[in-house]
Design a protein around this nucleic acid. Sequence first.
DNA 1: TAGTGGTCTAGACCACGCT
DNA 2: GCGTGGTCTAGACCACTAG
Lengths: 246, 246
Amino acid sequence: MNSTSIEKSPTFSPLYQQIKMLIMQGLQSGEWKPGELIPSEMDLAVRFKVSQGTVRKAIDELSSENLLVRRQGKGTFVATHHEPHVQFRFLRLKPDVGEASYPQNRIIELKRLRASSEIAQILDIKLGDPVVYFYRLQSFEGVPTMLDEIWLPGSIFKGLSAKRLEEHAGSMYSLFETEFNTRMIRAVEKVRAVLADERASELLRISRNSPLLSVERVAYTYADQPVEFRRGLYITEHFHYFNELT
Amino acid sequence: MNSTSIEKSPTFSPLYQQIKMLIMQGLQSGEWKPGELIPSEMDLAVRFKVSQGTVRKAIDELSSENLLVRRQGKGTFVATHHEPHVQFRFLRLKPDVGEASYPQNRIIELKRLRASSEIAQILDIKLGDPVVYFYRLQSFEGVPTMLDEIWLPGSIFKGLSAKRLEEHAGSMYSLFETEFNTRMIRAVEKVRAVLADERASELLRISRNSPLLSVERVAYTYADQPVEFRRGLYITEHFHYFNELT
DNA sequence: TAGTGGTCTAGACCACGCT
DNA sequence: GCGTGGTCTAGACCACTAG
């Protein structure tokens, strides 16, 4: 990096973008961990040999992408799934009436498999690579409501156990962050209406051919690396999937 | 507004927020219409007696809220639903394979009613106020796929006709913008899985008790004023509702 | 009181689109 | 060449937090 002139063609990018990338590398490498304080704007400006305003613009963007959180008077922190606010960004099923609450969590089965071609493609791993697969039933006030199947790359989630998953009810991602050093920062979902199959109807205690909301999610960590595939089936009689278009 | 000192308590707000509000008023009042060029940053800075940087920060935010669009070298424009890019922000149903395309549009019925208590509450109007109601069937390549019921406040959408609606297939909001001076800037949706009722199964040509995606939308114009309520039923066999969590 | 982020300014120069 | 938005700097002061 050059403090007096910016590299021009063919790979020109603004200084603040370069700073942004440097900070992201610090996040990705674990130099600054979720929940921790990063250096002040002035410190970073000195370290990177740019003005405070340029660091500020980089942090502004990272903050609007939910990778950093600014707190006036205190400093800038690495975002974490431990904050309750963040968790509802990734839990879009809300009760029709009343406040959102945390579901109870039951892991029905967890096993190690080899990636099928479909899963390998989605998780960007090789056919036959190790995969952790489990499915779980989540209930609100004792009423079974959400049934999820989840596939994770085995190379990252070594040693994941049903016990740990059940303890971390509504905040699986904070477990991943703490114990597997993997922070989910973005997810893409495909939502459909389907009919309950046999397994779903039994576990959710509803009749066959009840309508269910099917939500397929691929979640990504830094550098757009896919690290979770999930297929969820949700009862939407007293809940709905919430979305805002802006 | 004061150019040399900012008002403090109890109604303190940063200068750039005040500028932002002034620009929004210009948008709302129609001083600058969708698609038009607004004055340059320097012109606005002079007009509002602040520095260019302050105007810039105000425009930055309006731009990230999709109210304005900046084009380097050309100027800053009022966002419009006429741009194809914008239209897909509000059409979340995508084909499982292939590119998104525009549906054909058939208005089945359009009538004037009086607001029920439910509709009055949602649209923030009085019980019994005039309402335009219609429902329409949209098809992709001749296959019926989307069935929508739509309620609009009659005071705003005077003279809306089925003919005009059918001509404006995939971009109803651009029609609203041009002919009724009402620009949708934000919407909130509740998504559920339901079973086809009799009317839906006939119009969509599917069997009773097929699963359908139900999407209830409330759309807002400036100042968070609700101006549309919509209840949609979508076949998700070859389409899905797309969403990104960030 | 010291240190942090937040706001505001003024000025320089760059990149882009058009004439 | 000129006008637009885009980047970068340097410095001043404000608002919030914590010791």
